[in-house]
Structures are given as structure tokens and as C-alpha cells.
Design a protein around this nucleic acid. Structure first.
Lengths: 233, 233
DNA sequence: TGACTCCTAGAGTAATTACTCTAAAAATCA
DNA sequence: TGATTTTTAGAGTAATTACTCTAGGAGTCA
């Protein structure tokens, strides 16, 4: 039996993800749990600390993933690994969505968030650095940094972006999977030009694997009419 | 003398950008203008239509820019052109920041936003298509689409991202310029691997131009310690 | 059993905030 | 000028919502 405190966090997370933190009141949370507002406030002295506690869970989860030893790293393994990262981020997608307000409202949280991003980037650089050392990608330092920043932008914004274009996605759990694959696909697009050696042979296979399936393909570009299939020069 | 209606929109935009829409009440807006709430509500029947009106301004502005004939297109011209786009987007940065809530609260706005994104992507594809036809970039159709999506993700998220990491940026107008340049720099990073021919000769010059200056360099990666300058293989 | 702490209920409150209403000033027009 | 319309003020309201307070149940330990 999970504790009430845990249950509050869990349903808060669910509701926040589904409806956005702004549209979820503390009374809603209590209702959804079948407990009283008083009880909720016994465990969390205000709504902000619920958000902060969820961030703590999120960042711990992600940093743990990032700390995990990787063993010998191939591009395929790395991509699969990133898939796991993105999945975790998706679980806490409300956070990046409503980030602005949280950081505006809570100085301490803002500081922790900044530190969090720093560590994420640092660790990400190590991973890309290993890929480089193994001759999997061919980049100079500057390109490596640029790639890293762009990867982070993509990963941290993907959920919000999807949510903006597919409001239904928050409710429809079945979409999640394919939407996330699309996110990974976009990361592949980022990395593709830098791939060297035999790794390039896996490219098509990986692209096919993560390429958006029917439903998702329409998300961003599937139904843009102006695109002719002329092939590259 | 601008009309009261215009003035309401202008100060709303300013306040929204600075403090986030959520933290700006209609009374705040009225106060800032030195008019009565009643007056404000005479011109806009609720807060939502202010947001919607601002979106209309934003999308018209951006689409007009996108429609503008370009003449012969070089990569340098294109980059400069994107700089203008990003600047316009920065002017309405509150919108992409609080997007989720707006679309959740207003179905019609959600539909218009989707249509807007479609047109933006369509036009963006045309531009990248022209670069390809001119032999400036070398991409196949798939890469072109991937690049386009990533460019859009970057541009539409950049302001929020910056705001999350530099809360002060909203207040400090001097930072704007350099933060935006950094955004363009990241787009250059996206495109760099695809550049061909003599355009590559301009690469270093352009990178230098948009590379983050001292203040900004620390924004995302400047002070990450784990990064050694080992040079590429 | 009794004492003590932890947990819960639920009515209630204070503050915020989007929005209304009436009446009067200002502009427009005949 | 007088009539009509547009614009404004500003007090006020209804609803929401984060949060409090008191009292009582439920374990736990002596």
C-alpha cells in the first residue's frame, strides 16, 4: 500500500500531465484521490511543494539514468538509450510545459533547474564524446557542443510541441508511443550527417524504426502539400 | 495618438512577455495603462480575446515576412532572413511560452495555431528547397523535412528555453540581442553539415558573427567543465 | 487501558480575479 | 445647439481557489 503522500504525487502528476498544472486545483487532486483537502495540505503545505517534489523525482530519475554506466557504446545503443530518456521526460511532461511559471514562482526551484540542466548537458557531452572517440561520429568540439544543445532543445521541448499540435495526445495514451518515436527520429536527423563508418549502414534501419507511423506522420509534415518527391541532386 | 484598443494590446504584450500571461491580470493591464477595468472590458470582452488578438498580430506579422519575395537566395541572405523571423517571434515570445494553456482554453485558437504552423512549415520547406536547388545545401527529401522540423522546434522553443535558464532575460533588454544571435547560431549548427560548395567558405565568418558573446556563451554550454578542447580526430 | 503521535475529514475563510453595471464625460453629427 | 453614439470611470460582484482550523479517528507504545 503506497503512502498517501506518494499517492498525492502520483495523481498530481497524472492530472498535471493531462490537463496542465494551471488547470488542476488542489481540490481536484483531493477529489481524484477521494481524500479531503485538509489531508492533502497535511502532507504538502502548498501546491508549489507538490510541483517541487515532482521535479525532484523527475531530476533524480533522469540523472540516475544519465549516471548509469553504459558499457561499450554504439550508435544503436545510444539511440535506444535516448529513447529511454525521452520516455522518462514524457512521464513528467507537464514540467517542461509549464516551466516558465514554476521558475517565476520559485527562486529555489529555478536554481535547482539550472543546475539540473548543467549536469544533463555535461553528461550528454560525455556520451557524444564517447561516440566521437569510437569514431562513430565525426565532429569538432564546436559541432559537438552545437549538437548537444540542439539535442537538448529538441528533447526538452518535444512534449510541449506535440501537445500544442495534438491537444488530444494528452488524453490518448496510444499516441504516446508513436509520438515519442518521432522525437527520437528527429534526433536521428540531427546526428545523421555526422555518422561515419559502418554505423551509416544502420542508418536506414534505424530511421525506418523510428520514422513516424501513419498516425504520427501527419503530426508535423505528413500532410504538407508543397513537398514534391524530387530526390536529392 | 494610438487608439485605446491598440494601447491595450501593446501593454498587454509587454507585460505578458515580461511576467508571463498567467501573472498578468486584467487589472494590472488597466493599471499600467492608467485606465479603468471597465474601459478595458469595453474594448475586449475577456482576457482570452486579448491573447487571441495578439496571436492574430503575431501570425499575420510572421506570415507576411514568410510571404515576402526573396530574390536570389544565398545562405547568408537566408540566415539574415531567419534572424528577422526569430526577432519577430521574440517580440511575441509569451505566446509560445504559454501555448499549452491558450490552446487548452480556446478551441478556435488551437485550430488557427495548427493552420499557422502548417503554413510556416510549408513556406520554410520552400526556402530550404530553393537552397537545395541552388546547390547550397545537399539533402534528400527526408533530410529536408527533418531539418525543417528541427529548425521549427528550435525557433519556436528558443525563447522559452532561454527564459527558463535566464529568468533575468525577460527584464534585461540588453541580453535580447545576444540571446537571439545564439538562437541563430544553433540553426547554423543544424545546417552546417549540409552546406556545399563555396558557401562553406562563409561558414566560419557566419559562425563567428552569431557565436555567443561572453555573456551569452555561458547560457547553455559556456561553463560546462567536462568539455576539453581536444580538437576533432 | 491510557497516552501520545500520526493521519484524516470537511466545513470554512481570505484573497484573488475575471468580469459587470451604471452613469457620466467626450466625441460626433444634425 | 441638442441628440446620439462612443468611450471612459470605478464601484461592485460572483466565482474560484489556495489554504486553515478544529475535531476526531487510527495506530503505536507504556
Amino acid at each position: 500500500m503506497t503512502s498517501t503522500k506518494e499517492r498525492i504525487l502520483n495523481t498530481s502528476l497524472t492530472l498535471f500531465n493531462r490537463q496542465g498544472e494551471r488547470n488542476v486545483t488542489t481540490n481536484h487532486i483531493a477529489d481524484a484521490l477521494g481524500i479531503s483537502p485538509g489531508n492533502l495540505y497535511y502532507h504538502f503545505r502548498n501546491k508549489g511543494v507538490i510541483v517541487a517534489a515532482l521535479f525532484e523525482r523527475y531530476s533524480e530519475h533522469l540523472l540516475a539514468l544519465l549516471q548509469a554506466p553504459q558499457g561499450p557504446l554504439t550508435w544503436t545503443i545510444k539511440t535506444h538509450y535516448f529513447e529511454g530518456l525521452l520516455a522518462s521526460m514524457w512521464q513528467y511532461r507537464f514540467f517542461h510545459r509549464d516551466l516558465t511559471h514554476f521558475l517565476h514562482a520559485d527562486q529555489a526551484l529555478a536554481a535547482r533547474y539550472q543546475a539540473f540542466v548543467e549536469v544533463v548537458l555535461e553528461r550528454g557531452l560525455v556520451i557524444y564524446g564517447e561516440l566521437r572517440s569510437s569514431g562513430i561520429i565525426d565532429v569538432d568540439d564546436e559541432q559537438l557542443q552545437g549538437l548537444m544543445v540542439n539535442t537538448w532543445v529538441l528533447m526538452s521541448s518535444w512534449a510541449s510541441l506535440v501537445h500544442g499540435l495534438r491537444p488530444d495526445a494528452a488524453a490518448d495514451e496510444a499516441l504516446d508511443e508513436s509520438l515519442m518515436r518521432h522525437g527520437i527520429y528527429q534526433i536521428i536527423c540531427l546526428e545523421e550527417p555526422f555518422l561515419r563508418g559502418e554505423t551509416r549502414e544502420h542508418l536506414e534501419e534505424m530511421k525506418a524504426r523510428y520514422r513516424a507511423a501513419d498516425t504520427t506522420s501527419a503530426l508535423l509534415l505528413g500532410h504538407v502539400p508543397g513537398m514534391q518527391r524530387t530526390g536529392s541532386e
